[in-house]
Computed example of a mutant assay.
Amino acid sequence: MWAYRRCGWLLVAIGVIHCAIGLLLSWGILAAWSEAGWWHSIERSGVMHMDRFAALWFQVAGVSWVLLGWLTQQWLDRLGTAPASLGWALLVMGLLVAYVLPVSGAWLFVALGLRMAWSPRQPRSAA
Rank of each mutant, 00 (worst) to 15 (best):
V110Q: 12
A13I: 05
S45Y: 15
W88H: 06
A54L: 08
H40F: 13
G62L: 15
P102Q: 13
L76S: 13
A84E: 14
C7G: 10
F53Y: 13
W70L: 02
Q59T: 01
W9Q: 03
A54V: 06
S34G: 12
V47P: 00
L79T: 01
V60W: 04
P83Y: 13
G15Q: 12
A13N: 13
G113K: 12
F53W: 15
F58Q: 06
W27E: 09
S119I: 04
P83T: 08
S85I: 00
L68F: 14
G94Y: 15
L67Y: 13
C7W: 10
R52A: 13
A106F: 15
C19P: 00
L56S: 05
M50D: 08
A84R: 14
G113T: 11
Q73V: 14
S34I: 06
W57T: 00
A89D: 06
G28C: 02
F109R: 06
R115M: 11
A31I: 09
Q59I: 00
L11P: 01
F58D: 12
G22N: 10
G22R: 05
W88Q: 10
L76V: 05
L86R: 14
L11T: 09
G15D: 00
L71F: 13
L76E: 10
I21Q: 07
G62D: 09
I14Q: 05
M48A: 02
A61N: 11
H49N: 11
G46E: 15
W38V: 01
L96G: 15
F53V: 00
G69E: 04
P120I: 01
M50R: 08
W39H: 03
R52E: 04
S26F: 15
G62Y: 15
L23M: 05
L96Y: 10
T72L: 10
G87C: 09
G87I: 03
E35C: 01
M48K: 06
V97I: 09
S85C: 00
W107L: 07
L30I: 08
Y99Q: 03
S34R: 11
G22Q: 08
L90A: 08
G37V: 12
H49F: 11
A61K: 10
A82V: 14
F109C: 08
G15C: 14
G15K: 07
W33F: 04
G37I: 07
I42E: 00
T81C: 09
G62R: 15
P120V: 05
W88M: 02
R121S: 03
L79I: 03
W65L: 01
A13P: 05
W33K: 00
L56Y: 10
A98I: 03
A106T: 10
G15H: 08
L108D: 05
V16A: 14
H18I: 04
S41I: 03
P120K: 02
W9P: 01
S45V: 03
V12I: 07
G46L: 12
M50G: 08
W33C: 03
V12H: 04
L76C: 04
L11W: 13
L112D: 07
I21D: 02
V12Q: 05
G113H: 13
